[in-house]
Design a protein around this nucleic acid. Structure first.
Length: 429
RNA sequence: GGAGAGAUGGCCGAGUUGGUCGAAGGCGCUCGACUCGAAAUCGAGUAGACGGCUGAAAACCGUCUCGUGAGUUCGAAUCUCACUCUCUCCGCCA
């Protein structure tokens, strides 16, 4: 959420920034409502002031045995008017909030302006795509042939965009989860959290999924709850409505959760394989930090996510997203894209963002500055560390052999009972 | 699911015959004194949001906030109702 005072103080500047994100016009409505609110507020506060002083006076008069009937009558009448104006103000505030909650974050100055992913900038590459001396297969064919991914039966259970993992496939997924968590907790200093997989609407507002993106999520029927679309939601909202101590910052959190996404509006995209699913696993990284450090922290967080790809020896590149391709809450985002031989291109596997105080305002997460005792909003960051399903896809494709088997990346072997290779077998488990 | 207790400032915790209560006291924190320095001790200060004033801020003034929402009243932390959450006991259950 943007700071209303900032919008009021320099509306043209804010409008200019929002234009980079293809948002136009809404600010005029905001300014109008804001003006109206303040004028009504001034009026009603004056009336309340009169009521307060009068009430005290009445108390005094009664104590002294004087008749306060006339004044009481007057204040009672005024009370009716106050009630009316208060209601009017409340309506206006609701409208204002509605506008503010639907405005995206303002991009950081280092973010390139652009319409869509064409405007993204490649920052760096790591690793070299392998040269195959045979025609590499797509991961869905590899998975089906090895009988470790079962798309048909998944459809029977749950419909499209679900996958059943079997035998070594299930083991691989589980190994990756443990591997990622171990790296981030043991080497990068994150605290492991196992949060609920369902959260309230308030949490969704806090991190920016609501009110605008209700269609992207699964709502629990008859309840004010949603299935988490990412662990970013429960992790960031852990500290909702709290005042943190400066000495407690920075907070580094990591969590494994399944992620549930409706994928409305992505019909026809990535229909095959496990790239785009209604349910997928992810290990997430979240940081809660002091404002002046958040951009250093973003670089570190991105490096932490990159590390697991390096350890898996999967080639990737880092993209700086342009204004048109960034998520709603982000001020700056790096995407990690892993090399996918069957696509002949890089595919997003992680997204690392600095949301600055955008989520902190919505979720009301503040901290007390060590110098002085003023409060300020924290900055929040999040990043995939990384998407597990897409990592499986990348491993299958990058580590495939001509005979259809898969070499298990070395770092994963301890997590897979020493398994070095995945072959087709009735009996593998 | 049944019965009971509770929700107050960064934390703990007083405050229910309604009227200087935004709130005693303690802890913590900040500043100062003492000290070579620290601890201990002593003194002072210390809720937030919104709005006015201001270029901005501070100071100052006002409004609101004692779980949330509504109500009674000239006036509510204190009374009424609904809801949410926490705790204890009973039942059921992985």
């Amino acid at each position: 959420m943007l700071n209303a005072k900032v919008i009021r103080a320099n509306p043209q500047k804010v409008a200019q920034e929002l234009q980079k994100r293809n948002i136009d016009g809404v600010l005029d409505e905001f300014l109008q409502l804001d003006e109206k609110r303040r004028s009504l507020l001034g009026r009603v506060e004056e009336m309340k002031n009169f009521r307060n002083t009068s009430s005290q006076q009445i108390g005094k008069m009664k104590k002294e045995g004087n008749d306060a009937q006339e004044l009481m009558e007057k204040v009672r009448e005024m009370g009716q008017d106050i009630k009316k104006i208060d209601a009017e103000i409340k309506d206006i505030e609701k409208e204002i909030e509605n506008i503010l909650l639907n405005l995206p974050n303002i991009p950081h100055e280092s973010v390139p302006v652009g319409e869509d992913e064409e405007g993204n900038i490649e920052v760096r590459r790591w690793g070299n795509p392998r040269k195959f001396d045979f025609e590499p297969k797509a991961h869905w064919d590899i998975g089906s042939d090895l009988d470790i991914l079962d798309f048909e039966r998944a459809a029977k259970l749950s419909g499209a965009r679900f996958t059943v993992y079997k035998g070594p496939g299930a083991l691989l997924e589980r190994a990756l989860i443990n591997f990622f968590l171990d790296v981030h907790t043991q080497e990068h200093g994150y605290k492991e959290i196992l949060p609920p997989f369902m959260v309230t609407a308030d949490c969704m507002v806090g991190t920016g999924q609501l009110p605008k993106f209700a269609n992207d999520m699964f709502k629990v029927e008859g309840q004010d709850m949603f299935l988490v679309p990412t662990a970013e939601v429960p992790l960031t909202n852990l500290y909702r409505e709290e005042i943190l101590k400066a000495e407690d910052l920075p907070i580094y959190l990591t969590a494994y959760t399944p992620c549930f996404r409706a994928e409305a509006g992505s019909h026809g995209r990535d229909t095959r394989g496990i790239i785009r699913q209604h349910q997928f696993n992810k290990v997430e990284l979240v940081k809660i930090v002091e404002p002046q450090k958040s951009y250093d922290e973003l670089e570190k967080l991105t490096a932490d996510a990159e590390k697991v790809l390096q350890l898996l020896e999967l080639p990737y590149r880092v993209m700086l997203l342009c204004t048109g391709d960034m998520g709603f809450s982000a001020a700056k985002t790096y995407d990690l894209e892993v090399w996918m031989p069957s696509y002949g291109s890089y595919k997003e596997i992680s997204s690392c963002s600095n949301c600055e105080d955008f989520q902190a305002r919505r979720a009301n997460i503040r901290y007390r500055l060590s110098s002085g005792r003023k409060l300020d909003y924290v900055h929040t960051l999040n990043g995939s560390g990384v998407a597990v399903g897409r990592t499986v896809a990348a491993i299958l494709e990058n580590y495939q052999q001509e005979d259809g088997s898969i070499i298990v990346p070395e770092v994963l072997r301890p997590y897979m009972r020493g398994l070095t290779e995945i072959k087709r077998s009735k009996f593998t488990s």
